[in-house]
Write a protein that binds this DNA or RNA. Structure first.
Length: 820
RNA sequence: GCCGGGAUGGCGAAAGUGGUAGACGCGGCGGACUUAAAAUCCGCUGGCCUUCGGGCCGCGGGGGUUCGAAUCCCCCUCCCGGUACCA
């Protein structure tokens, strides 16, 4: 070793803040819209202002920043912004617990998080930062609401809502999870959700159900696409009407939805949801007591036991009958709580032979179970269980012999002809309920007037400001409703006294459009200017957790399409490429304050510096897999950065040796790192650079090295490492005699011809088992390789006494003797 | 139940198209430096057996295809995520 003069130690505590300040002063990451380079929009999901920045934020952001920096070195004009999702319940809950105002709590957190976030050295353009609770921002959230209202995409309607008693507000369907017993619980506080009929604001996301099923041209993970498709739950089938023979409640028929119209002739009963509007009038006098008791019991256990799929199929007969649309046979009308009012038509036809639930229901009640789709080798006997597979129609009059698939269409079309049904499509997706009976959100900009009805707040009056002095403790009613100063307002149309809408919007409305605002964050005339929108949108790459598959990511897609149809944007989709990173855990469990297993990044940054922490998070494993934070591993990255430091700064014995070996290692490293970073394989990218430093160190041990090749090697290493470890590489770039920021340099060019080795290791197998390895010149012929292999004692010993049947030859790789 | 994803050393993990399993790192062991420790550097590190040449076994389990399987096919177990009477 030739450390004649000692080099200064690697001191991240000194160098990291110094460089961050310098970049700040130089506005290194300020994005210029007029930059002629190709624009690239790289976005990571905006964090919620929870206050405590934990290592999970770093896990999400470090690789994103690395990719964004790499794209810049590729010559792109990269927009990489950050802001805060700031409205929402935790702010209120924390405020209640700490006796501070949600606004104060939120903005304190914004400040603290920004301070912490900045220690990462991420290349965010902070001049575009905002919080969704900024009046200047939610003014436009309200503007979007007005647009949606104007275009008939926002409406107020009575709906069976999911009410969370814990949060004191209604929730969207997507915000209700199932617990282990299958009971609906609040996504946030896990309280059991109650059903409540309420007048609420909704968005017509169902208008876009079919378009949302399309993912053409999107580079999205398959599992997310699948989850969205399942959530939409499109199923093709038929509507079938069963005439009642009289008019009840204005209806002369009951309509069911089915995916199996081919089984219509096997229908022996029908079942309505207990809440079905016709039930009361249908019920015969002698059945009334029983039916009402059943409805009452179903309502009581609502949502709770009713969700369990395993329990017995209960139900009661209404005493009423409908007529089979083809045969005219009497069909008993039952009610049962396994039929849901919210899906299809709230009524189903009972075909016990070909539906498992109907079979269970019918066999317990002695209802006929006629077979109408013949199972394979069917002998005409009755069935022991429901048969739901393919087959030909039987006992189905003119349809006998028809294949079930053809039968589905044929029956639907025949019903269409007689006016009793036809083909139709049903969806599981419901409209998105956005009203929230909470304080800390964007007020819905509507006014109710005695004479004018529901009136939108005029655009010029936006924002409808959230009053600071509201009593925000949750009661189930909107806190704003008790604020007289807020509620009372003159009707903008007639000037008479009106009342404001007092619900606020679901915070997912705020995150529906934040990616557009970054593009034009200071626009006072519009949420986003058309020109800048065309320049930057859609987002090229979006990274974030998979937990928003059917919430944020789904809503945002709907919103983009709505914005397009309202002629505000001209994109079909908000995110061209989506990448889901995994979750970082501690001791195998999700980090949470209540578990007390939150890893604070500040502690580790203080100990090793930001670059080490960034590298360690990326080195843990594949980004999409997530990982467990283990304190002991981080020292590896620290040691390695110290080795890089020394390698770059320690003088070498200059000469002319090993030039080829150094260049080969250099270009192999450049090739591997370039490849990995493009595929977001940050763990193997770092491993490749580590391998490279190991090689350089080994070469240096062997004596003098070619000065030019060595210099190229160190430059390449620093450039390749710059996106991942921005501080140390900037320092070393300067100390090794360069001028200008390393982060404004071009990514090193990979030269494949320099990376190629002149010899390769050829593996020699006998019957597929490794027996020897040969070092042979690249491009050695099979003949020469075989000759070399036959010189090997170990190979000969294995072939001895055997007959050679075949020789498998994979050039420059493998030679396999097949013998026995 | 259904739909996705996964299981590789003591640990985190590598292995684009079937072709040297365990790269890289942590931890461990041994050595150098030091009065000593830390730090750093060097060597070894999947298991079992070994006459020290090597041999056998090893990618959740069991079958199969193939000259050759972590990788392809079939069956099974377990773990994680989604969904759940959707007609």
């Amino acid at each position: 070793m030739t450390t004649a003069t000692p080099i200064p130690p690697y001191d991240p505590a000194e160098l990291e803040p110094r460089w961050r300040q310098r970049w700040d002063v130089d506005e290194l990451y300020r994005v210029d819209n007029d930059d002629p380079r190709e624009p690239y929009y790289f976005l990571t999901m905006l964090p919620y202002t929870s206050g405590d920045l934990h290592i999970g934020h770093w896990y999400a952001i470090s690789p994103s920043d690395t990719a964004a920096r790499w794209l810049r070195m590729q010559g792109k004009n990269v927009l990489f912004p950050l802001g805060y999702d700031a409205f929402g319940l935790p702010a209120e809950n924390a405020a209640i617990n700490n006796n501070t105002h949600p606004k104060q709590w939120t903005y304190n957190n914004v400040e603290a998080m920004t301070r912490q976030m900045k220690t990462m050295g991420a290349s965010f353009d902070w001049s575009r930062e905002f919080a969704t609770s900024d009046p200047e921002y939610y003014r436009w959230t309200q503007w979007w609401f007005l647009k949606l209202y104007e275009h008939g995409l926002a409406y107020r309607g009575s709906a069976d809502c999911n009410f969370c008693p814990g949060c004191g507000t209604v929730l969207a369907n997507e915000q209700v999870n199932r617990n282990d017993e299958g009971i609906g619980v609040c996504e946030r506080c896990e309280s059991i959700v109650e059903a409540k009929q309420m007048e609420q604001w909704m968005f017509r996301i169902t208008n876009y159900a079919d378009e949302l099923l399309e993912f053409d041209g999107l580079d999205w993970p398959e599992p997310i696409k699948l989850m969205q498709r399942n959530w939409i739950g499109r199923s093709e089938g038929a509507e079938i009407s069963f005439p009642l023979g009289r008019t009840i409640g204005g209806e002369d028929r009951i309509t069911v939805f089915t995916t199996r119209p081919d089984t219509l002739f096997g229908c022996t009963f029908m079942v309505l949801a207990p809440e079905h509007p016709l039930v009361a009038e249908l019920t015969s006098a002698d059945r009334r007591v029983e039916v009402e008791a059943y409805i009452e019991q179903a309502r009581r256990q609502n949502e709770i036991e009713r969700q369990s799929t395993k329990r017995e199929k209960t139900g009661v007969f209404t005493g009423a009958y409908a007529k089979h649309p083809f045969t005219g046979d009497d069909i008993q009308i039952w009610i049962a709580d396994y039929v849901l009012l919210t899906y299809g038509t709230g009524a189903v036809m009972g075909v016990p032979a070909h539906d498992e639930r109907d079979f269970a229901f019918a066999s317990e009640r002695g209802i006929d179970i006629p077979v109408v789709i013949a199972p394979p080798d069917w002998d005409g006997q009755s069935l022991a269980e429901a048969y739901t597979g393919p087959g030909r129609m039987v006992n189905s009059a003119q349809f006998d012999g028809t294949d079930w698939q053809d039968g589905k269409l044929a029956v639907a079309d025949a019903l269409d002809e007689i006016g009793l049904g036809g083909r139709t499509v049903s969806y599981r997706l419901r409209d998105w309920l956005i009203s929230r009976q909470r304080y800390w959100g964007a007020p819905i900009p509507m006014i109710y007037c005695e004479s004018c009805g529901t009136v939108p707040v005029p655009e010029d009056d936006l924002p409808v400001l959230l009053p600071d002095d509201a009593e925000f403790l949750p009661t189930g009613a909107s806190p704003l409703a008790r604020h007289e100063g807020f509620v009372n307002v003159d009707c903008p149309v007639c000037g008479e006294a009106g009342r404001r809408e007092t619900d606020t919007m679901d915070t997912f409305m705020c995150s529906n459009w934040y990616m557009y605002r970054y593009v034009d964050p200071h626009n006072h005339d519009a949420p986003i200017g058309a020109e800048l929108a065309d320049q930057w949108l859609p987002v090229d790459t979006y990274t974030g957790g998979a937990e928003h598959a059917v919430m944020h990511l789904f809503y945002a897609r709907f919103f983009a399409k709505a914005a397009r149809d309202m002629s505000v944007l001209s994109i079909d989709e908000p995110f061209a490429k989506l990448f889901n990173q995994g979750t970082i855990t501690k001791d195998g469990a999700k980090m949470s304050k209540s578990r007390g297993n939150v890893v604070n990044p500040d502690e580790w940054v203080g100990r090793y510096g930001a670059d080490t922490v960034r590298l360690y998070l990326m080195f843990l494993g594949p980004w999409e897999a997530g990982g467990d934070w283990d304190d002991s591993g981080i020292s590896g990255q620290w040691r390695w950065l110290n080795r890089v430091w020394n390698l770059a700064l320690e003088p070498v014995d200059s000469g002319t040796e090993h030039a080829d070996a150094i260049r080969r290692a250099t270009h192999r490293m450049i090739g591997k790192v370039s490849d990995d970073i493009a595929r977001f394989r940050f763990n193997t990218m770092i491993a490749a650079m580590m391998e490279f430093t190991n090689e350089l160190q080994a070469i240096r041990e062997q004596g003098t090295v070619d000065a030019a090749a060595w210099r190229e090697a160190i430059d390449a290493l620093l450039l390749c490492l710059a996106p991942s470890a921005p501080h140390i590489t900037e320092e070393l770039w300067q100390q090794t005699g360069h001028s200008g920021s390393i982060h404004e340099q071009r990514w090193p060019e990979f030269d494949e011809s320099l990376a190629r080795a002149e010899t390769v290791t050829v593996v020699v197998q006998v019957n597929g088992k490794l027996r020897d390895k040969l070092d042979l010149p690249l491009g050695t012929s099979q003949q020469d390789a075989e000759a070399a292999a036959r010189d090997s004692e170990r190979v000969l010993a294995q072939i001895a006494g055997k007959t050679l049947h075949r020789v498998i030859w994979v050039p420059d790789k493998l030679l396999n003797f097949v013998a026995n």
